[in-house]
Design a protein around this nucleic acid. Structure first.
Lengths: 205, 205
DNA sequence: GCCGATCCGATAGACGACTATCAGTTTGGT
DNA sequence: ACCAAACTGATAGTCGTCTATCGGATCGGC
């Protein structure tokens, strides 16, 4: 996912980019996050310099690979859930299927975690697409109305973090999806302290 | 925090261990997580080999430093909160003050995150100490009774993860403490899917 | 099909994490 | 005070990340 158009890549460069991303996704999925970049370059059939030319560091490489997966798999699922007439059930479906997909790509996600690829603005399109569903839920009174979109981003990140505490092949994360949904319910909702803005970049490094 | 007694360290070795931990805590607090180990050794006034001898890798060094902070600061706070007559208020106080302390040690926590120092068994004593409070809350009906102690561990980890999405000097995390407390309330609680055991070690590497 | 712009692989080097070795110092039990 | 065991700093080497450079290959607008 090259960001804005500086200038479109030349055909061969784009081809190489694609090969590198595919190799990275394969290798991380197969072997977890400790794959040397040289090996990714080798599997992609390009020189190491080319890899670094396209992806200045590991975090960016993994982030880009993740965005690819995201566009191909998560976004379509999301769009289906958005059309659920019951917004609460729709939200549940979104959380469930996102978690399920991320549990499946466990190694890739672990790599993203290890290299700091998951910044606050990750999945912006995802949450933008989610906004109407939340609003509808709030209007119809099935989602507490003191929740803002940034809360959902953080809650999604919190849910993902629970994956690292369990075997991803079991579905233990479902328990926490339910807890989150309970927290988002208007029933018994306590007044919330104010929301603060998201950090742009990954802090603490 | 050397684990069980293989054999107690010799006096000079223990002294060096202590100096290294203090240097690490200082440097990480000052400069974030990208401090070379050589520099920590230098500030501690020991050779780099000594550092590696006591702390086989970065994750262990940071984990040990964290446990030190934990024992010195978190545990005392916890003990006070445990005596609150209202277990729900006690739990709220525990979550609040733990988050506040961790927000204060933001850089140290970021280092722990970056080096994989936060494993599933982190803070075992903390949660063991917390157990009676939870039980009391469940008996008196102010905490939902389908919650187990591992849930609390995961929820604490989830709460901590929210720190990376905000400026730690603001208190934005309070919002999520309240949401968590709402989720833990018996009011409007949905039935939960089964709990699965914690992973022992950090997976995905 | 020409030719400049773009992209390529190979290579060299800096730096930090980590391992291994070893001669010299410190400790602590007697 | 002695001495073996424990501990030490220095040093040398491996590996992976990442930067920089450069002659040669490829692309694409004409």
């Amino acid at each position: 996912m090259p960001s804005e158009p500086s200038r479109p890549l030349r055909a061969d460069a784009a081809r190489n980019s694609e090969k590198i991303l595919r190799a990275a996704r394969e290798l991380y999925a197969e072997r977890g996050s400790d794959v040397p970049l040289e090996e990714i370059a080798r599997r992609a059939g390009v020189g190491i310099a080319t890899l670094y030319r396209r992806f200045p560091d590991k975090a960016i490489l993994v982030r880009t690979a993740l965005e690819q997966t995201f566009t191909e798999e998560v976004l379509p699922v999301l769009e289906r859930a958005l059309e659920d007439e019951d917004p609460r059930r729709g939200l549940a479906a979104v959380l469930e299927s996102t978690m399920r997909l991320n549990a499946r790509d466990y190694n890739m996600m672990a790599a993203a975690r290890d290299f700091g690829s998951l910044t606050a603005e990750a999945g912006t399109r995802f949450f933008e697409a989610l906004a109407p569903l939340i609003e509808r839920g709030q209007r119809t009174g099935v989602i507490r109305d003191d929740i803002v979109l940034d809360d959902l981003r953080r809650i999604m990140a919190m849910l993902l973090s629970v994956l690292w505490t369990m075997d991803p092949r079991e579905d233990g994360w479902q328990r926490y999806v339910v807890l989150v949904l309970d927290a988002l319910s208007p029933e018994g909702a306590s007044p919330l302290p104010p929301a603060v803005p998201l950090y742009k970049r990954r802090p603490g490094g």
